[in-house]
Computed example of a mutant assay.
Amino acid sequence: MTTELIEKEAIDVNKIIKADTDLSSELTDRLASAPRLGNEFKSKATITFNTTEGPKKVSTTVWSVTEKYIQLKNNIHIPIKSLIDIEF
């Protein structure tokens, strides 16, 4: 299955669902680094997450990470349990 690359403005938060496998504990270190990467180095992360239409990928700056969500620009929140991967 191919993962569609979309713009962050095209993210439909109502279609985001949990990933088949909960990788939140495996992604903890990378998630902790993501906001610093964007805020200090103006670099983007590529985030892959699960939706009702299959996996989607977005290349964007992570503004913050909470216990349950990653926050992107324009107040877009992606649940950590829906993440498949995050790359820098």
Rank of each mutant, 00 (worst) to 15 (best):
1 M>Y: 05
2 T>D: 13
2 T>N: 14
3 T>N: 08
4 E>L: 15
4 E>I: 15
5 L>I: 04
6 I>Y: 11
9 E>D: 08
9 E>F: 03
10 A>C: 05
10 A>K: 10
11 I>C: 13
11 I>L: 05
12 D>R: 09
13 V>G: 10
13 V>T: 15
14 N>S: 13
16 I>N: 03
17 I>T: 12
17 I>C: 15
17 I>R: 11
18 K>I: 02
19 A>L: 02
20 D>C: 04
21 T>V: 09
22 D>Y: 00
22 D>I: 01
23 L>A: 05
24 S>F: 00
25 S>K: 03
26 E>M: 09
27 L>G: 03
29 D>M: 01
30 R>A: 02
30 R>E: 08
31 L>D: 04
31 L>A: 02
32 A>F: 04
32 A>V: 10
32 A>R: 07
32 A>G: 08
34 A>G: 13
34 A>K: 01
35 P>Q: 06
35 P>I: 10
36 R>G: 05
37 L>Q: 12
37 L>K: 00
41 F>D: 11
41 F>K: 10
41 F>L: 06
41 F>P: 00
42 K>M: 14
43 S>T: 14
43 S>N: 12
43 S>A: 13
43 S>L: 10
45 A>C: 08
45 A>Y: 04
45 A>L: 03
47 I>G: 09
47 I>R: 06
47 I>H: 05
49 F>Q: 07
50 N>H: 08
51 T>C: 05
51 T>Q: 03
51 T>L: 04
53 E>F: 14
54 G>A: 11
55 P>K: 15
56 K>L: 14
57 K>I: 11
57 K>H: 07
57 K>Q: 15
57 K>S: 15
58 V>Q: 04
59 S>A: 14
60 T>D: 13
60 T>F: 02
61 T>V: 15
62 V>Y: 09
64 S>Q: 05
65 V>R: 09
65 V>L: 02
65 V>K: 03
66 T>A: 07
67 E>I: 05
68 K>W: 03
70 I>R: 12
71 Q>T: 14
71 Q>E: 13
72 L>F: 10
72 L>G: 04
73 K>N: 13
74 N>F: 03
75 N>T: 01
76 I>Y: 10
77 H>K: 04
77 H>R: 04
78 I>H: 05
78 I>M: 00
78 I>G: 02
79 P>H: 05
80 I>M: 04
81 K>W: 07
81 K>A: 13
81 K>R: 11
81 K>S: 11
81 K>G: 11
82 S>D: 02
82 S>C: 04
84 I>T: 09
84 I>S: 03
85 D>P: 00
88 F>L: 14
88 F>I: 00
